[in-house]
């Protein structure tokens, strides 16, 4: 591991610890755990909003038309716990979980969308977070394998 990566991981862990310490469990919008290095961070709505926001314009089989999904990029969230490789387990509020290769987040602008066309998701409609792939920009993503990864009501991210 080179010196820059070590420093980056250290800073991420420091930031994660700082955020985590300030959040009560019931206020957490999203919990991010790196089981490889033992780091865990609980993000509130404000924390998620404070991250750099990206917009992905795409269609998928669960929306009627081209939709602008906005939220932090998945790789930015994973970076908070110093993730560098492995399998990412995404878990929904109903305990439904899918496993996603870490490379997906590096190869594509996978967004942890908190709103669609400017309207924030409620828990009754895929909220608080819907994992969205840029399917319109990459035809190879228009496949049931990736449809299954469009998990909504995301509450936990774990790197194994």
């Amino acid at each position: 591991m080179n010196r820059f990566k070590k420093l980056s991981m250290l800073m991420s862990m420091v930031a994660a610890t700082a955020i985590s310490g300030a959040v009560k469990a019931q206020d957490a919008m999203l919990t991010v755990v790196n089981s490889v290095n033992g780091t865990e961070v609980a993000l509130t709505v404000a924390d998620v909003t404070a991250l750099a926001q990206a917009t992905v314009n795409t269609e998928n089989e669960f929306v009627d038309a081209m939709t602008a999904f906005e939220g932090p990029l998945g790789r930015d969230v994973l970076a908070l716990v110093g993730a560098e490789a492995g399998t990412v387990v995404l878990t929904a509020v109903n305990d439904y979980a899918v496993e996603v290769p870490y490379e997906d987040f590096m190869n594509y602008d996978v967004v942890f969308a908190t709103s669609a066309d400017g309207e924030a998701f409620s828990r009754r409609d895929k909220g608080p977070i819907w994992v969205v792939y840029p399917m319109s920009d990459h035809s190879e993503l228009q496949d049931p394998v990736y449809n299954a990864r469009l998990i909504w009501q995301l509450v936990k991210v774990e790197i194994k």
Partner: peptide, 19 residues
């Protein structure tokens, strides 16, 4: 929470190609 999740599942039926 279960109520909201159930609501969201009904919402799936209301839009998109899957709906």
């Amino acid at each position: 929470q279960r109520f909201d999740v159930l609501w969201s599942r009904v919402a799936v039926f209301q839009r998109g190609a899957v709906g």
